[in-house]
Amino acid sequence: MKNWWKILGVILLLYSFTVGMLIPLKPGVYSASPFTLEAGKKGEVTIYGYNTNYTKVKTPIRVWLTQDDANALAAESIKVVSDNQLIATFSMPTYYPGNSEATSLSLWVDSDADGAATLPDAISVTDNHPAKDVVDNVWTQQPVDNLSYTGKMTFPYRAMLGETVRNTYYHVPFWFAMMLILLSSMIFSWRYLQTLDIRHDHTAVALTQVGVLYGILGLITGSIWARYTWGDWWNFDIKQNMSAIAMLIYLAFFVLRSSFDDEEKKARISNVYNIFAFSTLIPLLFVIPRLYDSLHPGNGGNPGFGGDDLDSTMRMVLYPAVFGWLFLGLWMAQLLKRMAALRDKLYFEE
């Protein structure tokens, strides 16, 4: 089987499309209101769930407000309104661990139908007085423990991302595949300069075309994602800007090629430029973004890509998607290369 990788690529892509779209998100907490509660009073919090089944539980739902791993406050009473809505009543203590004026609390919901879910920094408490001597510390009496686990196959739920977490299977593979394709394009450029065999030039150009296509697709999918999560199509995020510039560098490659008439000269000089372009791509995409703050995960104090955000279910789809897009890209490049070779042949036969 000579073309096994093409079939494999298509299978991997179909797999990533279907599985990436079909697996539901883990039930999570979408939002909670009100945002502020007053210390020392009763606080009623309405909790909105996503993909949740609050009416289908066997044991009562438990809800906590937590300040950190050690300090948690359990809800006094919980009223189930619907599958996606709960009303939890807390009697807010006057004492809050830590010394800050305003305390930010995270919300935990645990139900046996959906498993445990959390909404970070859901509630802010005003008028809290960090007391010096506490007789009865309510924060350690009912810790968050015995969390339920449903064992269902789900993608992680993040209130900020929602369903767009599935964009991970498009946005990330485009950039991975683009890097690999542009790297191989550079290798073929080098081989052309070594051998002056025009076939290597065709391959290098075809790979660059596909690489630029993937880069543009990566920018577009990133832009759609940015619209949803950061609020705007273009946020002048350092990685957005640098990848746009990287695309300019590679678009200049095609302008450079079109400005030569002599085929041999065109091939030689544009392949020299291609190697140079790849060497500027590395600092653009991997060094400069580290010098500046970015909205991307893993930059500017944001949690890194991986850890909780990329669990094993997501990896199961992401890595096949990377190879799927890579193989599809190589296939496209092969077709483009053949077209270029045929065009050359026709040109010389005329």
Partner: peptide
């Protein structure tokens, strides 16, 4: 190349951005 001044700008500006 023939149009060297245009090429100079479009090739060099993105490349010196790092």
């Amino acid at each position: 190349a023939a149009n060297s001044s245009t090429l100079m700008a479009i090739l060099s500006f993105p490349a010196v951005i790092p």
